[in-house]
Design a binder for these strands. Structure first.
Length: 773
DNA sequence: CACCCGGAAGCGGG
DNA sequence: TCCCGCTTCCGGGT
């Protein structure tokens, strides 16, 4: 058996490839990249997404490329998912002479797709997703896995062929595709970025910049890229393009290691960009801004590897980005572009992104199922590398090179499952979080933390941010006015609140983890709601929502975000409360809280109760409840009163942070985290994120030794609102109108990273379902 | 004038 | 079909 293709007839690159495959099974990214370039463009990057036909195409491809003995297609009448489940032995049985090769190739593709997902998927800044909001908050386990392996591999590969490796690695996480484009620039890429930017931005006109960076390139490529050269393009060309694209991407994300290669890549990129630019009709040139925006996001994150198609798209995206970057904030970024370009861009940023995201999700599911690891652990996926706390608004175009990102890639790929639930920046809050937490602070010129601890941030460039958001959502006419409306909807759900007196300053009332959990929660809730009846939904609500909310909320309950889940989950434990719309009875009882916690934990971790993490969370919750509050881990107990600690300093100043919340809500909570829909009423101001009380760092979350986050609940003394009592609240609360007026108690932060829970009841509305209403 | 607010209607995706 | 999460518009307030 030829295991591998040593013989391959592949193109030169493949040759390497095959070799590689042969020696190292799951191969390195770079190899993958190459391999990918060779694959029929029509094949989804994630083998698990393949249809039967795709599987056949793949087999045929391998057969041909690796000179494999004839494959019996009848034995592979399955989709990609099934194919991926086949073991090496299975392959061997079905295809004696080529089983290993097929298996290896497939594994590589799978791995790669994982990587992709990781990196790209998260669009906006994926990495951040894990956030490091506060150092503490992060779970011990870095999301990014140890770079070690992968990276090393990567490097190695790089040696082999610079461009090759580039691709794979390149992938990256950059912020939302769109995002990246603008602001960020990867640290290293710096160099590259500039060129790219220049090139891109310039578009035709930008010749100067482009010229500098770009080396000669073929014009052709440009056209091809923009149009799409077609993946079909000859393998060689495709490869080249892919490599270039990858290089670009890589460059952006790339590590220092690449430095040597940079030149080449840069050149390629530049060339490509130039081409793109040229092709792209529109071109804004405003170079001025470029710097600020610097890197072409596209390159960074999105693009990535693979096929010529990808490359093209990437190129287009890059060009678009460049344009965007260059263009003054106000300029409509994509509008001017030709449609083809627009589409490509969209595809790149948006579509590819979304696809990747989807893939990720799928993968995650698979992984979870397969591994069943809760890992998430906290989701801490990433540690915050650079604490950018409070950064002033300054712009940093070039992030520090220290960035870990580069490293990240490696890890992620292999363990996507660890990832937290991702919204991939599709949700506004996530998008903002990702930008804010970008390790490189690439987006600091668009949005920056004023006080990370308190969750206060400032939109530095409203127009630019809105555009970026528009790109992300594919609503090119997005502007700050519209985006801000979306932000205002978050008031209802206590995700955000406005910092009074300061323009463009908002405060997150919930930390990302919570928000992410919410997602899951919402799902849970649905189920729960069904059982319960009321909950769910929506309910409710009176028109006003305000009051009704309160009551209703209970049903939904959620104490703080985290709790919410619980309520939703509802576990059996707490059902009662749900039932009643009115008061929330629940929250008070520990059990209910526990339930909430459990729910939250479940949401966060996914794993069933049995999982340690889950139990941990529950225990922590109990602990807290029993003790009052202080989460086991939390360094400090929370003040029952809104005190200092909590308060975020900053926030305090701001509006209300202080406010009182209403607490009340006690019981219920109003918000369901996830649901934005819940609305409370309005007002918002709730409390700020949770700050970590004790922590200096601030984030509300506290981590246990295990790495779990515990929740901190804050209690309010008061009760109010209706229900009264309850103490726990987390930070958010609701907002009833009344409440609004009233004040909110202070929030308590909880933490959670993964599990977090808060308990805050907010009562809020609940009913109100949607944000809308 | 820009910002901010929130109601109302609508849209696209899941 | 419904719900969610916005998007778009708008009138009004500061």
């Amino acid at each position: 058996m030829k295991m591998l293709p040593v013989q391959l007839s592949l193109n030169p690159p493949l040759g390497l490839w095959s070799d590689m495959l042969w020696r190292c099974p799951p191969a390195q990214p770079s190899q993958l990249a190459e391999l990918k370039t060779q694959l029929p463009p029509s094949l989804p990057s994630d083998p698990r997404l393949w249809s039967r036909e795709d599987v056949a195409v793949f087999l045929h491809f391998c057969e041909r490329e690796f000179d494999l003995p004839k494959v019996d297609y009848d034995l592979f009448q399955m989709n990609g998912k099934a194919l991926c489940l086949l073991t090496r032995a299975d392959f061997g049985h079905r295809c004696p002479g080529a089983g290993d090769v097929l298996h290896n190739v497939l594994q590589m593709l799978v791995i790669e797709s994982h990587m992709m997902q990781w990196h790209l998927p998260n669009s906006p800044v994926t990495p951040t997703s894990r956030y490091p909001l506060s150092p503490h908050s992060h779970p011990p386990t870095p999301t990014w896995p140890p770079i070690g392996a992968p990276e090393s591999a990567f490097h190695q590969t790089s040696h082999l062929a610079p461009h090759h490796f580039m691709a794979p690695n390149s992938v990256t996480l950059s912020p939302p595709p769109s995002v990246d484009s603008q602001a960020s620039s990867p640290p290293q890429s710096h160099d590259q970025s500039q060129p790219q930017q220049n090139g891109t931005s310039n578009s035709p006109s930008s010749s100067s910049s482009s010229s500098s960076s770009s080396s000669a390139h073929n014009g052709n490529s440009s056209s091809s890229s923009s149009t799409s050269s077609t993946g079909s393009t000859s393998s060689a060309s495709a490869t080249a393009t892919a490599a270039a694209a990858a290089a670009a991407a890589a460059a952006l994300s790339a590590n220092n290691a690449f430095s040597a290669l940079k030149h080449q890549h840069q050149q390629q990129q530049q060339q490509q960009q130039q081409h793109h630019n040229a092709t792209s009709a529109s071109s804004h040139h405003s170079d001025s801004d470029e710097e600020s925006y610097s890197e072409p996001p596209a390159a960074n994150s999105t693009i990535v590897n693979f096929s010529a198609q990808s490359y093209q798209a990437a190129a287009a995206a890059a060009a678009a980005v460049a344009q965007y970057n260059n263009s003054p904030p106000t300029t409509p970024i994509l509008k001017d572009m030709p449609q083809s370009l627009k589409q490509q861009i969209k595809n790149t940023f948006v579509n590819s992104w979304s696809q990747q995201q989807q893939q990720q999700q799928q993968q995650q599911h698979l992984n979870l199922e397969q591994q069943k690891l809760p890992n998430l652990g906290g989701g801490s996926v990433s540690a915050p590398t650079t604490p950018s706390y409070m950064q002033p608004v300054k712009r940093e175009f070039f992030p520090d090179k220290t960035d870990n990102r580069y490293m990240q890639p490696v890890k992620r790929e292999f363990f996507p499952e660890n990832t937290e639930p991702n919204t991939n920046g599709r949700l506004l809050w996530d998008f903002l979080q990702q930008l804010l937490n970008d390790r490189n602070q690439k987006y600091s010129d668009l949005i920056a933390w004023k006080c990370r601890d308190t969750g206060v941030f400032k939109i530095v460039d409203p127009a630019g941010l809105a555009k970026l958001w528009g790109i992300q959502k594919n609503h090119l006419s997005m502007n700050y006015d519209k985006m801000s409306r979306a932000l205002r909807y978050y008031y209802r759900v206590n995700i955000l609140r406005k910092v009074q007196g300061e323009r463009h300053c908002y405060q997150f009332l919930r930390n990302p983890t919570e928000l992410k959990n919410i997602k899951n929660i919402s799902l849970l809730r649905q189920s729960v709601g069904q059982t319960n009846g009321t909950n769910g939904s929506p309910g409710a609500t009176n028109s006003n929502g305000s009051n009704s909310n309160v009551n209703q909320s209970p049903s939904s309950i959620t104490n703080s975000p985290t709790q919410t889940p619980a309520s939703q989950m509802q576990t059996p434990q707490r059902p009662s409360s749900q039932g009643n719309p009115n008061h929330l009875t629940l929250p008070n009882s520990i059990s209910s809280a526990a339930a909430a916690v459990a729910a939250a934990a479940a949401a966060a971790y996914g794993p069933p109760p049995s999982s340690p993490l889950f139990m941990h969370a529950i225990n922590g919750a109990f602990h807290y409840l029993s003790s009052n509050g202080v989460p086991p881990n939390s360094p400090a107990a929370l003040p029952t009163t809104p005190n200092d600690k909590f308060q975020f300093n900053i926030m305090k100043n701001e509006q209300n942070s202080v406010t009182s919340h209403e607490t009340s809500g006690a019981a219920s909570d109003e918000m369901k985290p996830t649901d934005l829909s819940v609305s409370g009423s309005s007002s918002v101001e709730k409390r700020p994120y949770s700050s970590p009380s004790a922590n200096d760092d601030c984030y509300p979350l506290i981590r246990n030794a295990d790495g779990l986050t515990t929740i901190k609940l804050i209690r309010y003394n008061e009760s109010e609102g209706g229900a009264g009592t309850q103490q726990q609240n987390s930070g958010l609360n609701d907002s009833n109108d009344n409440q609004q007026q009233q004040q909110r108690n202070t929030p308590t932060p909880m933490d959670s990273e993964s599990s977090e829970m808060e308990s805050s009841p907010s009562h809020d509305s609940m009913g109100a379902t949607d944000l809308r209403k």
